[in-house]
Amino acid sequence: MGLTEDPAFRATTYVVIDFETTTPTGYPAQPIEVAALALRCEDGVWKETGRSTSLIRPPAYAPVTPADTAQTGLTAEQLHQAPTPAEVLGALDRRLTAGTPYLLVAQHAATEAGVIHHQAEHCPRLARTDFLDTIPLAKHLIPNLPNYKLDTLLAHFGIQQPPDRHRAYADVDVTAQAFLRLVRAADLDPQLVDFAALVKTAGRTAKANRPVQTELFDV
């Protein structure tokens, strides 16, 4: 039985997510844009089950810098009237259906996981959702690439660079395409026979789900 035939794999909704951020000195990264694309594998066929994208107004201590604008094209003027992180992430959180198993998918998931963790009060359900990181999955399946940046994966799979690369909605689309190519390769991998093996290889536990470490000795 291949990976995509595993009932646990098919029961899961995979939400590919991408943030663009600004990184103020002394503070964690603050989101300025988010995009999410939900996918399910039903009878071996992938179906899109939801899509969301929004600009996000950063707090005053985290203004958009010229470097941010150079990378994303986003300006302070564009974000001035955007909804707050609480509004955007709260709305995204409410789209997750209780009782449905989800797995967030991201390229270099530590970035997305960090943003969500610091916004957990606005998106508690999202903050308890574990991640699948495309980088360790690609390292396992394609061991000889020079690096595992998204652009390298796109080139390897022959996926066209989007004109708006480094905008969340464009990056989430190509990340989803790369993820589906990786799943196709995983279906042929004798080590990735089921959902549990996939998570063991490329999973990242959400910080909210990690056990609290206690001190070994009282001081």
Rank of each mutant, 00 (worst) to 15 (best):
D6E: 14
D6I: 13
D6R: 13
D6P: 11
P7M: 14
P7I: 12
P7D: 13
P7Q: 14
A8S: 14
A8K: 13
A8Q: 14
F9P: 04
F9G: 03
F9N: 02
F9T: 03
F9R: 05
R10A: 11
R10Y: 08
R10V: 08
R10T: 12
A11L: 13
A11V: 11
T12C: 12
T13P: 11
T13W: 08
Y14G: 02
Y14T: 03
Y14E: 03
Y14M: 05
Y14C: 06
Y14S: 04
Y14A: 03
V15R: 06
V15P: 01
V15N: 01
V15Y: 01
V16N: 03
V16M: 10
V16T: 12
V16R: 04
V16L: 13
I17Q: 04
I17R: 04
I17N: 02
I17Y: 03
I17W: 03
D18I: 04
D18Q: 04
D18V: 04
D18A: 02
F19A: 10
F19S: 09
E20C: 08
E20A: 07
E20G: 07
E20D: 09
E20R: 05
E20N: 06
T21M: 05
T21K: 02
T21W: 03
T21Q: 03
T21I: 06
T22P: 11
T22K: 10
T22V: 15
T22C: 14
T22I: 12
T22D: 10
T22A: 13
T23G: 05
T23H: 07
P24H: 10
P24R: 11
P24T: 15
P24E: 11
T25C: 10
T25V: 15
T25M: 13
T25E: 15
T25I: 14
T25R: 15
T25Y: 13
G26I: 11
G26Q: 13
G26E: 12
G26H: 11
Y27W: 13
Y27V: 06
Y27M: 10
Y27Q: 10
P28Y: 09
P28W: 09
P28F: 11
P28L: 06
P28T: 08
P28C: 08
P28G: 08
P28R: 07
P28D: 09
A29R: 01
A29Y: 00
A29M: 02
A29V: 02
A29P: 00
Q30N: 07
Q30H: 07
Q30G: 04
Q30Y: 03
Q30C: 08
Q30R: 14
P31N: 09
P31T: 09
P31Y: 09
P31K: 07
P31F: 06
I32S: 00
I32M: 02
I32P: 00
E33L: 01
E33P: 00
E33G: 00
E33I: 01
E33S: 04
V34P: 00
V34A: 01
V34Y: 00
V34I: 06
A35Y: 01
A35Q: 01
A35W: 01
A36G: 10
A36C: 12
L37R: 10
L37Q: 06
L37N: 07
L37I: 07
L37Y: 11
A38L: 04
A38C: 08
A38S: 12
A38M: 06
A38I: 03
A38W: 06
A38K: 01
